[in-house]
C-alpha cells in the first residue's frame, strides 16, 4: 500500500521488539537495551511507520525517560530527533501525508475497534475511521463501546486470564452484534485476542489489521 502511494519502503532486518512487554510488566532492565537498538536500526529513516499503536505509545511515552535512565547524552539526543519521525500507520497517512482516501477497495462488512493506546496515548481520534470511510465498497458498521478495552493488555491476558476473558467476551459480543464479517484495528495484539475468541466460538468472523484493508484495491481485491 505504501509503495502504491509512491513511497520507498525499507525493512531493517535487525529490528526485533520495542520492549513494551518487558517495560509494562515491570522488567525495566530488560527493556532498556532495546532503545539504542531501535535507534541504530531506524536512525536513517525519513519516517518510521509502525503498524501497532501500542508500540508507538511505548516509544513516545517511555523512550525519552529510558534514554535518560541509560544516561547516554548522545542517545538522549538521538531519541529526541528520531521520535517525531515515528508514526503509527494510520497516523502516518492522515497526519503526515494528509490523506484519508488511499485508493483502497474492500467489499466487506467491517467494524473497527479503537485500541486503547492508539485512542488515548496517541490521540488517533477518528483518523482510522476516516480512512475506512474512504474505502470503496466497504460497509462500515460502528461497534458499541468502541473505546472500551478488549482485555488483551499484554501479560494481563495471562496474569489475569479470568478478568481478561470476561472483558474479551463483552468485546466479541459487541463485534458479533454488528453483523460484520471483519473486525479491524490499528493494533495486532488486540486483534490476536479478539481473533482467538472469535475462532474458539466458531463465529467465522475474521480480524484483519487496518493496513490489510487499505492494501486492497480494485485491481487486486482482498
Amino acid at each position: 500500500m505504501l509503495e502504491r502511494l509512491g513511497h520507498t519502503v525499507d525493512f531493517p532486518a535487525g529490528q526485533t521488539c520495542c520492549g513494551q512487554m518487558h517495560w509494562n510488566t515491570g522488567y525495566q532492565a530488560e527493556a532498556l537495551p532495546l532503545v539504542p537498538r531501535f535507534v541504530a536500526q531506524f536512525r536513517h529513516a525519513e519516517a518510521v511507520v509502525v503498524p501497532s499503536s501500542s508500540c508507538v505509545a511505548m516509544m513516545r511515552d517511555h523512550y525519552p525517560i529510558m534514554a535518560k535512565e541509560i544516561g547516554d547524552a548522545r542517545l538522549i539526543a538521538e531519541v529526541d530527533q528520531l521520535l517525531p519521525r515515528v508514526y503509527e500507520f494510520s497516523e502516518f497517512l492522515t497526519r503526515c501525508l494528509g490523506l484519508t482516501d488511499v485508493g483502497a477497495y474492500y467489499p466487506h462488512r467491517v467494524t473497527y475497534h479503537a485500541s486503547c493506546h492508539g485512542l488515548r496515548n496517541l490521540g488517533l481520534a477518528d483518523g482510522p475511521l476516516d480512512l475506512l470511510r474512504s474505502v470503496k465498497g466497504i460497509n462500515l458498521i460502528e461497534i458499541e463501546n468502541m473505546d472500551r478495552c478488549c482485555g488483551f493488555g499484554g501479560t494481563f491476558a495471562v496474569k489475569n486470564a479470568d478478568v481478561s476473558s470476561a472483558m474479551l467476551a463483552e468485546k466479541t459480543t459487541a463485534v458479533l452484534n454488528t453483523g460484520a464479517e471483519v473486525c479491524t484495528a490499528c493494533d495486532n495484539s488486540c486483534l490476536m485476542g479478539i481473533q482467538g475468541a472469535l475462532h474458539r466460538q466458531r463465529t467465522g468472523v475474521r480480524t484483519v489489521h487496518l493496513a490489510e484493508i487499505l492494501a486492497g484495491s480494485e485491481e487486486a481485491p482482498r
Binding site: N24, Y27, F156
Partner: peptide, 30 residues
C-alpha cells in the same frame, strides 16, 4: 499493580490528572 490492562481510561477521567498507568508500571517494576 497487575490488576489493569493499562488501557488508560482511568487517566483520561482523573480530575487531577494522576497518570495511573505510569504509576502501575512503576509499581510493577518494584
Amino acid at each position: 499493580p497487575y490488576a489493569s490492562s493499562l488501557c488508560g481510561a482511568c487517566y483520561e477521567v482523573c480530575p487531577v490528572k494522576i497518570n495511573i498507568p505510569e504509576v502501575l508500571i512503576h509499581l510493577r517494576n518494584k
